[in-house]
Design a protein around this nucleic acid. Sequence first.
RNA 1: GGAGGGGUGGCAGAGCGGUUGAAUGCACCGGUCUUGAAAACCGGCAGGCCCCUCGGGGGCCUCGUGGGUUCGAAUCCCACCCCCUCCGCCA
Length: 426
Amino acid sequence: MIDIRLLRHEPERVREAIILKQAGDPQLVDRILALDEERRRLQTEADRIRAELNTLSRQIGQLFQQGQHQQAEEFRTRTVQLKERLKALEARLEEIEPEQESLLLQIPNLPHPTVPIGHSPADNRVVYQWGEPRTPEGLQPHWEIAESLGIIDFARGAKVTGSGFPFYVGWGARLQRALIAFFLDEANQRGYVEMEPPLLVNAQSARGTGQLPDKEDLMYVVERDELFLIPTAEVPVTNYYRDELLDEEDLPIRLCAYSPCFRREAGSYGREVRGLNRLHQFDKVELVKIVHPETSYEELEGLRQDAERLLQLLGLPYRVLLMCTADLGFTPAKKYDLEVWSPGQGRWLEVSSVSNFEDFQARRMNLRFRPRDGSRPRFVHTLNGSGLALPRVVAALLEHYQHPDGRVRVPEALIPYLGAAWIPAS
RNA sequence: GGAGGGGUGGCAGAGCGGUUGAAUGCACCGGUCUUGAAAACCGGCAGGCCCCUCGGGGGCCUCGUGGGUUCGAAUCCCACCCCCUCCGCCA
């Protein structure tokens, strides 16, 4: 959620952001401003009536105590009319306030000045590339490797649950476990405190990080208990401090968590969803930062490095994209995507998304800190990044390290976790 | 699931129909003292919203949430949520 004051004082910037992000109708701004004006007018009047009522009440109390019942009765009748007027004003306010709130929730975060302006994903900027992508010639895609190794069972997953819910079997399951432990250990070493979060959250939490109302279709809902399966650990972990007032000394807070992630991913097709490319349930280690507003862009670069390091340790070629305005998404002010090279498919796969939300989530979550000098509370900045999402890493790993004899070599850093240097052909 | 107790400012904790937006302590901020620090002492210190003749003044709302009673509610009533204790169930 953006600051209504920003919208009042610089509506042009907000309109521009909506257009640049291709996130809705810029006329929203004018509707909100009109509502805001009415709301303030009504509130001023309502406040005045309440003030008068409060004064009368106090006087009535005194009159009763002094035994001047007649005078008191007279005042009492006056409160009746005032209350009627107040009621009408309140009724209108109760219409306006939620409407304004819901409109305001539809305004996207403003892009940071360093974000390139663009019209489509093609305008994302490649800012860094690491490693030598293998050419696809003679290489198998991961789903073929996984099948011949017998380590991922897509068909039985589809039978038991549905497509996009694979079983990992034998070395496949062990590989998942090894990667999770490896990612978590690395995060711990970099100063992130490990958490194990709930996998279901309530509506308030889903709203806090921005899943509600705009991305509701993305989530599985447990209607009976009004809970949502988390699409990412970002949701529970960032909401950990929701509605709290932190001390400046507490910042920065760095957290990490492994969780399965559940995504409905309605409307996907073809090669996009082949194999491990897109699943309804997948594993991910998430990195979350809660920081002082002045340091959030340094923290963003640090977060990016922490995520990149993992791919380097795994020896997987990747590139870093700076997302342009059109592909930035609703909540972030700035975002990098890390894409790993999938040699078996000859394409890049997103394995991490590293974002600075500035105070956009903090405002929704009402998460503030008290400055050292004791002055009024300020909103924190929140960031997060995957470190990393497993399936596409597994895909890249199987394809990159496949051996002509059918086995898959295990990267050095992972050997202690997997307890083997090769995934054997079955 | 059943019975009982409870949810008050950053934290702890009083208040239980009318100068209580809330005692007290801790924390925090400013100052005195000190070579410096600690201690002691003095002062300040909840948040949000709105208005104005605006580096100052004023008003409104908020004591888990929502509703009700009343001229007036943190205080009384109802519903819901959450926490604790005991019982039940259980990985």
